[in-house]
Structures are given as C-alpha cells and as structure tokens.
Design a protein around this nucleic acid. Structure first.
Length: 414
RNA sequence: GGAGAGGUGACCGAGUGGUUGAAGGUACCGGUCUUGAAAACCGGCAAGGUGUAAAAGCCUUCGAGGGUUCGAAUCCCUCCCUCUCCGCCA
C-alpha cells in the first residue's frame, strides 16, 4: 500500500497514476474516509484519556463509589465510539489497499501496445519447428499423462529435456552466486498476509491466480518472489546490510484462469514451472540502480546462452499494482517470427515493504521503509522453448549452447 | 498427534491487577579521554497514530483476537508460533 500521508499531500498524482494503471479507485473518497477515521480516533482518544484519569484517581487506596460509577459510564460511551472507529478503519483500509503504487516518470502511459522497446540483441532468425512438435518427436515431454494425473496444462519433462532444464538452472545459479546473491529455497505455500502483502491476490476478489489450500491459511506460490518478500516481514534491517540480494528457486503454481485467448501452446503457459528468481531489498535511493543491475544480469544470462531478445519498458496499464516500473525481456521466436515474454524485472519501491512492515534503521537512528525488487533469472519452461526454437537442427537433434555443456556432462548435442 | 514450558523494545532479559512504556544488559548515536583506535566513563536512544512552524501534549501497542475490572504486560477464553520430552517419519 501507499503511505496515506503521501496520498494526502499528492492526491492528484496518486489519482492519475491509478487511472494510468487502469485502477478504478477514488482518492477523494479515500481521503474522506481518512478524515472520518481520524475524527473518530480523536474522540476515542479523548474518552480513553478520561478513563485513564479516572482510574488514576483511585490508584492509592479505597475507591469512592462515585468514581467507580463515573468509570462505568465512560466505559459504555467508549465501547460505542470504538465500534464506530473499528468500522471506519476497516472501510478506510479496504480502500487504501486498492490504491496501486505510483509509477516513475519514464514509464510509458497506456496499455500493452504502448510499452517501449529500449534494446535489441541477437539475430532474428525465422523458420523453425514448434517446440512442442519437436519435443514430442523426441519423447521429451508428455502432456497427455500430465492431464491424466493432474489435469490440462500439467506435464512431465523426460530424459534429455529434463536434464537440459537442470543444466539451465545450474548455469543460472552459478552466475547468480558469482554476482553475490544468496541462494535460497523457500516455502512453496504461504499465508494470506504474505500473499496480499506482496500485492498478488486482489484481496477482495476470488479471481486470484493462486491455488489455495482448503481449510488452511495457505496458498501455493505463483513465484518465489512471494516467499522472498515475506522473508523480512516485520523486521528492521541495519542500513549497512543493504542491499540484500537473494536468489530463490521454486516451482511456480498458477491457475492461469483468465488466460484464454493468449498464447498458450505447449510449455509457454502452464500450471506449474520452475523458476529461479532474483530478489533485492534496498535503500530507497538504491532501488533504481539495482533495478538496472537486475536487468543487466538477465541480459547477461540470455546473451551467454545465445537467445535473441529485446527489452521493453512496460507501459503503465500492464504494470500491476505493486510495480513502479518494470522491464520485460522478450525472446525472439523464429517459429512465430515475433517476440514473446521471457522474463520480468520490477521495482516495487516501498509498496510491498510497507504492506509487510519491512524497514531500515538509518545510521542516524531514523526508520524508513525499504524498497523491494524482483527479477526473473530463468523461468525454466520458457527457457526450454527458447533453446529448442533457437538451437534445433534439421536432423531433429538439438545443439547444446556452449555455456550449458559443463552441466550436461560435456555433451554438445542432445 | 500427545504432555509440559514459554512468547516483553533493534537484540538479550526483569516484571503476576494501580507513577511499568516497561528494571538491567547488548547494539546504536553524541561526548570525555587517546597520536589514532580499543577500553573506561558521562549522556541519549521503542514503535504507531494524533498534534505542532518545530516542540510539548494526548492515545495506542508487552504473539493475535475476545472477555473480566473503575483500572490488565499481569486474571480468564480461543487461536497462532517457539522450545523440551514422547510418538511418527523422508
């Protein structure tokens, strides 16, 4: 959530940012609720002071009946006001949670088509066999049995393709260790507070992309970002420890409920895939620099493997609530002759951190909310698509990208 | 899953109904001392809300939520978590 004090001082800016992001929230309504809440708060505070003063009077010895009677009267009034306050607080908080993060100046305004390409790398080849056809011919993937065991869009990876996935993971993991990230495995199930605090499930709606465990306060994570954000919840971190850089490996579980009409063939959009995620907790003044750094690492990975791509600066309407700015890397698909989403890298500024109460203790003793950032190092299912599409041979074999060979026992061809 | 113990400030740790927002220690900040540092000593130091030019002031917070009471960190109930032992198990 945003800082209510910031919203009070910049109502137009917040309203405009919400509009640019496609969120229909009324800031004037929010501020009205804020006033009501504060008014009730001061009424309650006054009554509590009366109660405390009254109680203090009879601290010493035998209380007088008149004081006790007065105390009882205050108690009744207070209970009534407190109920009003509780309701007002809830109404206010519910609306505050619906306000999305503001965006940076250099974020293009508009929808998906307004995102701006800021870089291209590699050769745009054309004319390759679709990854699914290619993989099925090699008996590398089995969606039919995945459907039998779990349902549509679940799958088995088999043999060399499963080994290739492992090789890509190991390669990326090694790279991130060199960059100073701390490798982590994380809980794959998280509670509601962590999920909503990260900004994922719209708390009011049931159209969540997350699988929830019935009868438990637990949901399957759609990305390790969720578990990693919650890692430092309610903590105060010393300034000189930041930035903290983590690399989390986990499966990502997604219902993909609203995915109809989107590109879904094969491994591109599935209910479960492995992903190695970069995550950073930073000082506010560091986050933009770290954001660029995360993007640079992503580029380094795809360049090393040899996958053509471009980088886009995502337009406001596609950012989602928590992000102030987002870079996507899209790989070049020689099958479709177009770019497709591969990784994503967001600066969420203090939005998630405020939800989960993650702060930094400055050298001068003051407290401030930290900034959080996340970026995909490799999402495995899509990584496999890129390699199959870009490294396939006419005889049905697959050339192993050089940097991956050490993780495949030196094999050059699969 | 069963039995017991416990959850207090950035951290450790006192505190069982009324100057306890909370002793003491550590860390941190400022100072004295020192060529410099350390040590020692002196002082400061919870968070959130409200309020203010800035303060002061006021309210809240001792795992969470209810309850008892004129008054709760302290008593009662429910839940969550941690630790120890037993059971089970990769």
């Amino acid at each position: 959530m945003l800082d209510i004090r910031y919203i009070r001082e910049n109502p137009e800016k917040v309203q405009q940012a919400a509009k640019d992001k496609g969120y229909n929230v009324s800031i004037s309504e929010l501020l009205k609720l804020d006033d009501e809440r504060r008014d009730l708060q001061s009424q309650v505070d006054d009554l509590r002071k009366k109660r405390n003063d009254n109680a203090a009077k009879m601290k010493g010895g035998k209380p007088e009946q008149s004081l006790i009677d007065e105390g009882k009267q205050i108690k009744i009034e207070l209970a009534e006001r407190e109920e009003y306050l509780t309701n007002a607080e809830k109404e206010f908080t519910d609306l505050l949670w619906q306000v999305p993060n503001i965006t940076f100046e250099d974020v293009p305004v508009g929808g998906e088509e307004d995102s701006v390409e800021i870089k291209q790398w590699g050769e745009q080849k054309t004319g390759a066999i679709d990854h699914l056809d290619f993989a099925i011919k090699r008996d590398w993937v089995d969606f039919e049995r995945g459907a039998k065991v779990a349902g549509a869009k679940f799958y088995y990876l088999k043999g060399d393709l499963a080994l290739l996935e492992n090789a890509i993971t190991q390669f990326a993991l090694t790279k991130l260790q060199e960059k100073g990230f701390t490798f982590m495995t994380v809980p794959h199930l998280v509670n509601q507070r962590t999920l909503t605090g990260t900004g994922f499930a719209p708390r009011t709606s049931e159209q969540s992309d997350e699988y929830a465990i019935e009868g438990e306060d637990l949901s399957l994570i759609g990305t390790a970002e969720i578990s990693l954000t919650g890692y430092h919840a309610d903590e105060i971190i010393d300034e000189d420890r930041l930035p903290l850089m983590y690399a989390g490996l986990s499966p990502s579980y997604r219902k993909e409920a609203g995915a109809s009409g989107k590109h879904t063939r094969g491994l591109f959009r599935v209910h479960q895939f492995s992903k190695l995620e970069m995550y950073a907790f930073t000082l506010p003044e560091q986050s933009q620099e770290v954001h660029e750094k995360l993007l640079a690492i992503e580029e380094e990975i795809w360049q090393a493997i040899g996958i053509p791509y471009h980088v886009i600066n995502i337009a406001s309407g596609d950012l989602g609530a928590p992000a102030a700015k987002k870079f996507d890397i899209e790989y070049w698909s020689p099958v479709d002759g177009t770019y497709r989403e591969l990784t994503s890298c967001s600066n969420c500024t203090d939005f998630q951190a405020r939800n989960l109460n993650i702060r930094v203790r400055r050298k001068d003793g003051s407290l401030e909310t930290v900034h959080t950032l996340n970026g995909t190092a490799v999402s495995l299912a899509r990584s496999l698509i890129t390699v199959i599409e870009n490294f396939q041979n006419e005889d049905g074999t697959l050339t192993v990208p050089e940097v991956l060979r050490p993780y495949l026992g030196g094999r050059e061809v699969l």
